Amino acid sequence: MTRKRATAIGFTAVLLWSFLALFTVGSAPVPPLQLNAICFGIGGTIGLIWTHFSGGLQQLRVISWKVYVFGTVGIFGYHALYFSALRLAPAAEAGLIAYLWPLLIVLFSGLLPGETLRRGHLAGGLLGFAGAALIILGGGADFSADNLPGFALAIACALTWSSYSVLSRKLGDVPTASVAVFCLASAVLSMALHLTLETTQWPQTQIGWLSVLALGLGPVGAAFYVWDIGVKQGDIQLLGTSSYAAPLLSTLVLILAGVADASWPLAAAALLITGGAVVAARANA
């Protein structure tokens, strides 16, 4: 597989993540950790079925347990930290801090063998972050010291996903099918936390059930498989910068669905995020 094709495949994860907010809204009133458990269960099961029919189950048996621990910590850890951060701090501010992960991917990737961090990569990442800030904060921010525990968890969240993505590059010989095990293990851990911390609730409408299924098939399912291909074989710096398209596309999807309203800050954010991606792409030319 060429580097360009792997990058394109990896970017489909960003497209899938852009539907995360819409499907999450549609899945109400299912609590977050229960939703996590269901969706990861769907994504992991489908991954195992695909692996079975492609003859890859034998590969899973010879993968080191350390790899499975690494993948589970990355996928489950990110979501657990994200949900916890949003419970202990305002969602907008905590979400913005958590969204440092694309910029951190760009920075950390410069430490990988065969990769070079250029000024264009850094400039593109900063432009993308500025665009994401416009969308997430909506023109206001309140970084109160009372919310420091939540902000700390949001930083840990960003470090977890960026580190997972960059270190995955070093596991290039590990088949993407291993992500199925990561997802199933994350489902088990999510359910354990759900039973401890939440009250079980199920979707009340057909739209709710379809939203849960769509989440498991896409943003909390297939997205992790294609992202794995992208970060292992594609242009990880360009993927990091272009990941800022996720909050932009997510907002556009919500507008088209009638859940959110269009605004001038959104247009400015679109220019910043698009400009950042262009700057980062030119850095590779």
Rank of each mutant, 00 (worst) to 15 (best):
T2P: 08
R3V: 09
K4Q: 02
A6W: 09
I9T: 08
I9M: 05
F11H: 09
V14F: 12
L16N: 06
L16Y: 11
L16F: 15
A21V: 11
A21F: 12
L22S: 09
L22R: 07
L22I: 10
F23C: 10
S27N: 04
A28H: 10
P29L: 15
P31E: 07
P32A: 15
P32M: 15
Q34W: 10
N36T: 11
F40R: 07
F40A: 13
G44R: 07
G44D: 03
W50A: 14
G55K: 01
L57K: 03
Q59P: 00
L60A: 08
V62F: 09
I63L: 12
V67P: 00
G71N: 04
G74E: 03
I75W: 06
F76G: 07
G77Q: 06
Y78T: 14
L81D: 00
S84C: 05
A85P: 02
R87S: 11
R87F: 10
G95N: 09
G95P: 01
I97L: 13
I97D: 07
A98C: 12
V106A: 15
S109K: 12
L112D: 01
P113D: 05
G120H: 02
G120V: 06
H121Y: 03
H121E: 02
G131W: 06
G131E: 07
A133E: 01
A133N: 01
L134S: 03
L137T: 02
G138T: 02
N147C: 05
G150E: 02
C157E: 00
S162N: 07
S162Y: 10
R169E: 03
P175Q: 12
T176H: 06
T176D: 11
V179Q: 10
V181M: 12
L184W: 04
A187I: 05
L193N: 12
L193H: 07
H194V: 04
L197A: 15
Q201L: 12
I207G: 10
L217S: 15
L217G: 15
L217Q: 13
L217D: 11
P219I: 13
V220W: 14
V220I: 15
G221R: 13
G221C: 13
A222T: 07
Y225N: 05
W227E: 13
D228L: 06
G230Q: 07
G234N: 09
S243T: 14
Y244H: 06
A245W: 08
A246V: 11
P247Y: 08
L248N: 03
V253D: 01
G258Q: 05
G258P: 03
G258Y: 05
V259A: 14
W264Y: 04
P265C: 08
A268P: 00
I273K: 11
T274M: 06
G275A: 07
A277F: 07
R282Y: 03
